[in-house]
Design a protein around this nucleic acid. Structure first.
Lengths: 208, 208
DNA sequence: GTCTATACTGAGATAGAC
DNA sequence: GTCTATCTCAGTATAGAC
């Protein structure tokens, strides 16, 4: 069958979003999909590459939309900088939108980070997008030294990852799997938090 | 030998800090330590429990110092709230101090988060400390709804985790393993970033 | 009480027949 | 394209030597 590949992808997405990447064995996936173990390696090469495909098919549309929104704001702003808040909106709104339509997407994104899933995959699919947004933030916050901006982008990535993931380490009021509405609310809060953090004055240099 | 346990702990700390928890097999650890495989299970029970011991012996001193500093600030402040910046200082200064003395500690803390290491371990060792700091922040930021404060604490944990870890996903100017000075500077920047984020106005409620 | 040798189960990966 | 059989390596469990 030509849809063996599709059946594997569907089963993998559901199971990995649900239980995590490490906790989901290929044997579990193939049982769910009703296919043979070797088929996974035939179609994808490895468990890691299977994950890679899952991410591509979900994330590329989001990243495209992010860049499109950013460009729209930049056209609006003419030669001036786009505000921090608008840059954040261009980055998070497409994610909120995608999350509202497909909760599995949300969970998968969260897993990717919280399980420390293969920095190479992240780099491959997100570096170009991050690079563009870094540039935009640099123009929005010209008083920040580049090193400090990079550090804050790390903080932003970390905060986002943790926000999006389901395994909470302090009580949040949300029990169990967060709904799409929870997700939306959390990301709105994140945007406010991040604009406060990004707009903070530069850290004074101290002698070590 | 009575120091078999110690040899295992030392080898495990070095290897896990270096390569990560998942990537470090018990067989690798025992080869490095020059002991038998079963000795690990005799002394610790499981790989997970070994990690648990590693974390306890490093983190409990830091958490004790955190609570001590917070109490000092609270005594100073009398019946008023401790400022956000002081709460953050009480939380991060002991970590900076520990990191300056022992870089492995830093890396291990980072791994714990970035690999999504066993929420149960984190919960066990950090919940009491987080609870106290949550309470202090609640007093410092009484205008924030509790749910929003909890969300921001998640963001804080995420930002901290990512900041402390070695695997960067955007360029930072720091190549390779960060030094103790890099670590110190990064955490200072984090404190500034977080105080900006925590002090941001509450997120307006919107109809979904 | 401590430690060694060895075996068990389940994981991802691969070769080769069909 | 698909499937069977097999390989290697992981964490774990146990029996028994000292």
């Amino acid at each position: 069958m030509i849809d063996t590949k599709q059946k594997i992808l569907d089963a993998a997405e559901r199971l990995i979003a649900d239980q995590g990447y490490a906790a989901t064995s290929l044997r579990h996936i193939i049982a769910e999909a009703g296919v043979n173990l070797a088929a996974v390696h035939y179609h994808f090469g490895s468990k890691e590459d299977l994950l890679d495909e899952l991410i591509v098919r979900k994330a590329s549309a989001v990243n495209r939309e992010r860049l499109a929104q950013l460009e729209r704001f930049e056209t609006e702003a003419g030669s001036g900088p786009v505000t921090v808040e608008k840059v954040l909106a261009a980055f998070f709104d497409p994610m909120i939108e995608a999350g509202s339509r497909s909760p599995e997407f949300v969970k998968l994104m969260g897993r990717m980070y919280t399980e420390g899933l293969i920095p190479a995959i992240v780099a491959k699919h997100f570096h170009p997008t991050f690079a563009r947004f870094t540039q935009a933030l640099h123009r929005a916050l010209p008083h920040l030294p580049e090193a400090e901006l990079f550090a804050r982008l790390q903080f932003m990535i970390g905060a986002m990852s943790h926000a999006v993931c389901g395994d909470r380490q302090v009580p949040t009021g949300v029990i169990g799997t967060p709904s799409a509405a929870d997700f939306r609310r959390t990301l709105r809060r994140l945007m406010v938090f991040l604009s406060g953090g990004l707009r903070a004055p530069a850290t004074p240099e101290v002698q070590q």
